[in-house]
C-alpha cells in the first residue's frame, strides 16, 4: 500500500505536517563505525516515526494486516520477531540483543551479532563490497544492500547473454 494512501485513510492531512521531524537522542556503545551509503529504504518509509509516533507499540507476535503486509519473515523466523531487531520504543533505530539501540546506518552491527564470521570478513573488505578507490577512500555496502534482512538469501539474477560461438563469430 502506498504511504500516502495509508495516511489519507488513517489520518487527516494536517497530522502530516509536523511528522517529518525526527529526534532520536540515543547513546551508542563505542565501536568503530564504517563509511556507508544511505540505507536502501523504500521511498518514504523513513523516518518510521512519521507513523509510529501515533501508534502504541505492539510487541505481540502476530500476522500484520494493517501495514507492512509485504514483509514475510524468512530468516530463522521460528525463533524471531520484528522487535528482536527493531527498537520497539524508538522505531527509527534498530536494537541489539543487549537492548542497545543502533542506527540504521550501522545495521551491520546487528547482523554481526549472529554472523560473526561474515562480519569479520566484511570489515576487511572480503565479504560484501567496498566502493571508492583501491588506494583511497572507501565506502562499505551494508549487508542489507545485498541481503533483504527479512528474507536474506541472495536473490538469483538473470545472466547477461552468453558469448557467440566461435564458428558464428569468425566468418
Amino acid at each position: 500500500m502506498k504511504i500516502s494512501r495509508f495516511f489519507s485513510r488513517k489520518f487527516p492531512l494536517s497530522a502530516l505536517v509536523s511528522v517529518l521531524i525526527l529526534a532520536s537522542v540515543t547513546v551508542y556503545a563505542a565501536e568503530k563505525t564504517f563509511e556507508v551509503p544511505r540505507p536502501p529504504f523504500s521511498e518514504g518509509i523513513f523516518p518510521c516515526s512519521q507513523c509510529h509516533k501515533y501508534f502504541k507499540p505492539n510487541p505481540k507476535r502476530r500476522v500484520l494486516t494493517e501495514y507492512h503486509t509485504e514483509i514475510v519473515l524468512h530468516h530463522a523466523e521460528g525463533e524471531r520477531w520484528c522487535t528482536d531487531c527493531h527498537n520497539l520504543l524508538n522505531r527509527d533505530t534498530l536494537r541489539l540483543v543487549s537492548g542497545d539501540p543502533v542506527d540504521f546506518s550501522e545495521s551491520y552491527r546487528l547482523c554481526g551479532q549472529c554472523h560473526g564470521d561474515k562480519y569479520r570478513d566484511w570489515k576487511v573488505g572480503v565479504h560484501g563490497k567496498r566502493t571508492g578507490y583501491w588506494n583511497g577512500e572507501k565506502q562499505y555496502l551494508l549487508c542489507v544492500h545485498c541481503h533483504n534482512p527479512h528474507d536474506p538469501k541472495f536473490k538469483s539474477l538473470k545472466p547477461l547473454p552468453p558469448p557467440v560461438r566461435p564458428d558464428a563469430a569468425r566468418h
Partner: peptide, 14 residues
Amino acid sequence: PGRYPACEEICPVG
C-alpha cells in the same frame, strides 16, 4: 586516487 577495474566495480555479489 586509483579507481577499481570496471569488472570489480560492477560485480553485484562483491
